[in-house]
Amino acid sequence: MKMEVRLQKLIAGTGLSSRRKAEMLIVSGRVSVNGRIITELGTKVDPTRDHVKVDGKHLTSAQPFVYLILNKPKNVMSTLDDPGGRTTVKDFLRGVSVRVFPVGRLDFDSEGLMLLTNNGELAQALLHPRYHVPKTYLIKVKGALSNEEISRLERGVKLEDGMTSPSHVKKVRKVEANSWLEITIREGRKHQVKRMLDAVGHPVLKLIRIRMGPLSLGNLEPGEFRFLMDREANALRELIDERMTSVERGEEPATRPKRPIRREGWAKPERSKKFSGKKVKAT
């Protein structure tokens, strides 16, 4: 019985590239099937019978790449082990048979989205400062920021290790003497968001990472995780492909937000769409 799949899907499924880059490989004549160069997108092959080569090398299936999002709770280490015996993100990954590792870190007292994967190349690219992958945080701060203070954050503030790159700041709501903000940055300095808010006189009281690149925390409860859907994993790989291509061409990715900044009043907090797929809760 034949089990045919699209050629670009087969290539992407081995972890060699994203679906989009696989299409580019095909169109540029770098893929052959049974000794014949294939340049037509949509060509179907039977992986159990057909011999596929990319750049003259046989396409081989590596260990499947695994990607998952964890909502890291407060007072949990964002590492796989801790010499002090504190709770780590690994303690919430029961049932995950493949060894995955965190992409970046969140402070011990911070919460929110953490990506874990066994794809080391993609993880390294996501953390590379030249690729400017945006990260968005929902933050509770002491007091309420003025428009001028928000403008300072967006232009960049001077820290002990230099000026920060432009960011995007949105007022969310005010609660008694404190307030909530959303801030998007494209750098990864240590304690950066907390230091930026300290610099304008509004210490952070609570910090939750809600987005990273195309990924969103959604409605995961603290301590819950879920595996990425195919479209999310592809979007992640395609984002990195685009950033790497821009850098190779000498076109630094844009660091300024594209949408206009709202100044008037307090915006309603964004409501995440309910995730309809599998959700796993640690027990």
Rank of each mutant, 00 (worst) to 15 (best):
E148W: 01
V100W: 08
L138N: 12
S151C: 03
I150V: 15
S146E: 06
R152A: 05
T88E: 06
L122Y: 13
L159T: 13
A125S: 15
R86H: 07
N147Y: 09
F108Y: 15
P102N: 00
G84M: 13
K142W: 11
P102K: 03
S146R: 02
R152N: 08
Y131E: 06
S167R: 01
T87Q: 10
V141L: 11
R105Y: 01
L113A: 08
G84L: 14
L106V: 02
Y131R: 04
T88Y: 05
T164R: 08
G112Y: 07
L159Q: 05
D109N: 15
G85I: 03
G120C: 09
V89W: 00
L159N: 01
L127N: 01
Y131K: 00
T164D: 04
D107M: 08
E121H: 06
K140H: 05
V157G: 12
L115G: 01
E154L: 04
S110G: 02
L122R: 10
Y137P: 05
M114G: 02
F92A: 11
V98T: 14
K158H: 14
G85M: 09
T88Q: 03
T87K: 15
G104A: 06
E121I: 03
L126F: 03
F101M: 04
F92C: 11
L106I: 09
K158C: 04
L138M: 12
F92L: 04
M114D: 02
F92I: 01
G162V: 08
T164C: 05
G85P: 11
V157F: 14
L153W: 00
E111C: 04
T164P: 02
L115H: 05
V157M: 02
V96A: 07
G143V: 08
E154V: 00
D91T: 13
G85C: 13
L116A: 08
V141G: 02
L122I: 15
G85T: 01
G162L: 04
V98L: 02
T136Y: 05
L153Q: 06
R94I: 10
P134G: 02
K90F: 00
T88V: 14
G84S: 11
V89I: 15
